[in-house]
Design a protein around this nucleic acid. Structure first.
Length: 607
DNA sequence: AAGAATGATTTCTC
DNA sequence: GAGAAATCATTCTT
């Protein structure tokens, strides 16, 4: 443990010297002589008893500082290209604002790209051994990450100004589509709907971004859609709740009736009568009579032409098919076709403890069309579920309801109209989330417009476009860059643990304390010094990020991370004759938290 | 024409 | 600042 403390001090020393150096360097590289460059880091490590030969590629590093950082982001040419293209096809107002947006985006990416590269270089430089190839690769990755980001933004801007609507096939739709995005088309609805039902009704920011990308809607629109969707689903549930209560409150032993119906003691006709009476429904005599007359005629005809008893009976039995008016149907909740209701009833019974377990199962695959069909099957073991459900009174407690529904895994079903508007049949199976990782910058996929398209675009360009949306986008992208993109970029993950690790040596006293006191925990370690205000620990497959000190961690978890990070960091310095290669630490995501798995419940860590 | 559906906005709360 | 709830405005369905 002596070496632990010793190494901490050494690193602290190296760190302060290097920090001075690199800040000087950023301002004026000429201040540093060639001799100094080639020997500085070697000397530094040699001073502390390490083999200087582990510090290779000195010159490369300095060259990188000098050259790489000043390289323009590769978006530059694309950027110019964009300007030229858009120049030709939109009016002055649209053009200006579009270009402003693109410019802001570009500057933003440029600036952040530089910062990231600078940070990466600084951090990597501090390590005992350098590997030019690795560093260049890292810088390239950062470059391409930001190129992608910029491409995405441009794409979004284009969507906003209706760029893609400007083709010959959709002239009529395009103006209204881009000025006033009224109804979303079927494809978009399908995407949102299936996301809502299958994955989450409350997407996280990065998920919203993906949705935004796949639908072409803005994040704001995505949010609005999900808000509305949640609200309305909730309202529907409440309505069903009310109807169910009403249904169950009727002074009828429904279970008994259904059993009778199943066993044939009661005909559907009987059931219908019972229901109509129970609910005091506006009887639909007129419709009924008409139909009966009709059927009667058919029956007679059949009887005369072909006096086959069975076919006659068959036909006759159709006559008794229960039919209610539309209005009546609405009131008879359990017989309504939009029907997770059956589960609801089961839930309510369960909670009321009057009828134990069995009630019908609602079949995903078919619309229940009659009483028998609706209640023909039995719900699988309710007892499994009941243990988890709350015991609160259901009738007026939507929270409890939601809990129960979730537990039951009740699925939302689009109602008839919705089903109609969604062109593809709603797919109930969870779709494999597409892993979209283009190696190539997305910008290459943005189709360019030919001359003819430009002319069309010019004719139909939107007049009253609200560009606050574009600004919105810029702002949103800024957020995303901080919290999602940067942390998602594997390049950044690789090195972003480093600043944290180094910063921890600011609190050496804490380390010291920990060494003397076996019971000491690192809860008190200051995390506010974390350089980029995020902490990223990467394990084999698990990846969790705290964007702001220990907010997303419990203090216990945070402290574990601290400890492990520090230990691992010390391991960076080769002990005695151990020859540790660059790859051991940097081509391997296990860098920081290899041994954490058994200590941290990754499932509970927000990522 | 009435009513349902739905995207968007406003207001309020936590 | 995010989300729920209420509401508005417009479009679609019946």
């Amino acid at each position: 443990m002596d070496s632990f403390k010793e190494k901490a001090l050494i690193l602290d020393d190296i760190r302060s010297k290097l920090t001075k150096l690199s800040s000087k360097f950023q301002n004026n590289s000429n201040l540093i002589s060639t001799d100094f460059r080639t020997s500085f880091r070697q000397q530094l490590f040699a001073d502390h008893g390490y083999d200087p030969s582990i510090c290779d590629d000195e010159n490369s590093f300095f060259n990188l500082f000098e050259c790489q950082l000043d390289n323009e982001l590769t978006t530059e040419t694309i950027h110019q290209d964009e300007i030229l293209k858009i120049d030709e096809c939109f009016d002055e107002d649209v053009k200006t604002k579009y270009l402003d947006a693109v410019n802001s985006a570009h500057n933003f990416c440029l600036q952040n790209c530089r910062d990231q590269k600078r940070a990466a270089l600084r951090d990597i430089f501090m390590l005992p051994s350098g590997n030019k190839d690795y560093v260049i690769k890292t810088l390239d990755q950062i470059d391409s990450s930001f190129t992608d980001m910029f491409s995405n933004m441009v794409e979004q801007f284009r969507v906003t100004i209706g760029f893609y609507n400007s083709n010959i096939n959709s002239i009529n739709n395009s103006i209204s589509a881009c000025i006033n995005q009224t109804r979303f088309n079927d494809e978009i609805k399908q995407i949102l709907e299936s996301y809502f039902c299958e994955i989450s009704d409350r997407p996280k920011h990065c998920e919203k971004l993906e949705l935004s990308k796949s639908t072409g809607l803005t994040i704001r629109q995505i949010e609005t859609w999900f808000n509305n969707r949640r609200n309305r689903a909730e309202r529907d549930n409440e309505k069903l709740e009310r109807l169910t209560t009403e249904f169950l409150d009727k002074n009828v032993d429904w279970e008994d009736k259904f059993t009778s119906a199943r066993s044939g003691k009661l005909t559907e006709n009987d059931m219908r009568t019972i229901i109509i009476e129970a609910f005091d429904l506006p009887c639909i005599d007129s419709i009924e009579e008409e139909e009966e007359e009709e059927l009667l005629v058919i029956g007679e005809e059949i009887e005369t032409t072909s006096p086959n008893e069975s076919s006659f009976i068959k036909k006759k039995s159709t006559k008794t098919r229960g039919r209610l008016t539309k209005e009546a149907r609405k009131k008879v909740a359990p017989y309504n076709k939009s029907t997770p209701m059956t589960e609801k009833i089961a839930m309510m019974r369960m909670n009321k403890n009057d009828i134990p377990t069995s009630i019908s199962q609602y079949e995903d695959s078919q619309e229940p069309t009659s009483v028998v069909q609706l209640y023909g099957n039995e719900l699988p073991a309710m007892s499994n579920i009941s243990q988890q459900t709350t015991t609160t009174d259901l009738s007026n407690n939507s929270v409890a309801t939601t809990t129960n529904l979730t537990t039951l895994k009740i699925r939302h079903r689009p109602n008839k109209n919705l089903a109609k508007t969604i062109s593809q049949p709603y797919n109930r199976t969870r779709q494999n989330k597409q892993v979209v990782k283009d190696k190539e910058p997305i910008i290459s996929k943005i189709p360019s417009m030919d001359e003819e398209q430009f002319q069309v675009a010019e004719e139909i360009q939107p007049q009253n476009l609200d560009f606050t949306r574009v600004n919105d986008l810029i702002r949103q992208f800024s957020d995303v860059v901080e919290f999602d993109q940067l942390n998602d970029i594997s390049t950044v993950n690789n090195y972003s643990t480093l600043p944290f690790g180094f910063e921890q040596y600011d609190s050496l006293s804490t380390v010291e304390q920990s060494l003397n006191d076996p019971d000491f925990t690192f809860n008190t370690v200051t995390m506010s010094n974390i350089s980029d205000s995020y902490l990223d620990c990467t394990s084999n497959t698990n990846n969790f990020v705290s964007t702001n000190t220990s907010q997303n961690f419990s203090s216990e978890q945070a402290s574990i991370v601290d400890v492990i990070n520090q230990y691992n960091l010390f391991d960076l310095l080769p002990d005695n004759d151990t020859n540790i290669t660059q790859q051991t630490y940097f081509d391997n995501n296990n860098f920081a938290v290899d041994s954490l798995d058994e200590n941290i419940d990754f499932n509970n860590v927000e990522s």
